[in-house]
Design a protein around this nucleic acid. Structure first.
Lengths: 192, 192
DNA sequence: CAGCGAAACTTGTCAGTGGCAAGTTAGAGT
DNA sequence: ACTCTAACTTGCCACTGACAAGTTTCGCTG
């Protein structure tokens, strides 16, 4: 909220990330143009490069932010006393609520996968996921492998989220992704 | 195998699709360049447009081919007397064996989703998937909803495939995607 | 087999894009 | 007040996708 545009934007990094998220939500990561983002933010076409190096750098920052948000989501459902099922629904809630982030997080060819921030955020999300699965581990019958159980849970939840946001699922599932997710995910957690 | 390059390539469409699949497998759909494909095929830079209209057209053709191949895969495991688990493993085999096709099939913003060929191929794959799930339906306990069961199966299988090809899964799962898939998917189908 | 219509490709061009290099401005610390 | 550096700008180049208009070849009809 400055009267006239100052030379220093002041918050360009954040602004660009937000604009990128919006643009990607609308048209996907492939259609993203750095110059377009710059225009939207009212800066020169080369300004984005200063903060992110290149396009992959921007998407990497977005992905890292995404993993952080995902970890937050999982941690918060856990803090609320939710079980694995709730964590799963939380995963879907994140994917649907942050399509842009989600659509970039699992496309490594768009990212600088060696970026330390990205790695850190990934690790944090990974830990949060492991915690959510481990919380249901105690009442496990037999010595069923926890590791495999976690991967099963991750797979079904990730699969549902991916299919939902890509519009591949049948329409008669309704318009509420969380309710639908709960139904579809349940069979894995409530056998018998 | 002509002695000198004829004006009519003869099989450009196929050649371009194959080249595209190769390029995408290496660097993802975003990095795909029509002009590069043309160069690889030894034709002019505008030749691809003749066959596919534009980039989305090419990717749409690739996606349609992909859905066809997926349907083939599922039908063949069914013909071999396999159950849902085998169909699931077949799904993963397809995704890993045809990364390029798979990576494009579920990114609607890259495609012309109204394309009739794409729709037809999608429907065929959808039917094959439904058949694979229905085949295990008879011995179902209680009136568990078949529709939901199918979506659960699709989700876990699709999720595993997606995570595997994106390199998100832990390395200690080994290098054999089918074996790993079988382990991770089983909990859904063999409860109790 | 002549020729003609349509399909398959080429050449040329334009606006838009990403990325680099070199300059300019502002702010922060001393 | 001075300087050092981060935050941006201007200018440029190679490349890309899309379109328009031409050229070559194939296949079919008569």
């Amino acid at each position: 909220m400055r009267d006239t545009r100052p030379y220093h934007h002041g918050d360009l990094r954040r602004t660009l990330l937000a604009a990128a998220a919006e643009a990607i939500t609308e048209s996907g990561p492939a259609a993203l143009s750095l110059r377009d983002l710059a225009r939207r933010a009212g800066v020169s076409h080369a300004a984005p490069a200063h903060h992110f190096g290149d396009k992959a750098g921007l998407l990497t920052a977005l992905a890292a932010e995404g993993f952080g948000l995902l970890a937050d989501e999982l941690d918060s459902t856990r803090a609320a006393g939710g079980g694995v099922l709730d964590a799963g629904v939380g995963y879907v809630r994140f994917a649907v609520g942050h399509r842009a982030h989600f659509s970039v997080m699992f496309q490594p060819e768009l990212l600088n996968d060696t970026d330390p921030e990205l790695r850190a955020a990934k690790d944090r999300a990974s830990d949060a996921l492991a915690d959510a699965v481990a919380s249901v581990q105690e009442p496990q019958r037999r010595g069923a492998d926890t590791r495999i159980a976690g991967l099963s849970a991750w797979s079904i939840v990730h699969g549902f989220a991916t299919l939902w946001v890509s519009g591949a699922l049948p329409e008669d599932l309704g318009t509420d992704p969380e309710a639908a997710a709960r139904q579809v995910i349940r069979p894995l957690f409530a056998p018998g």
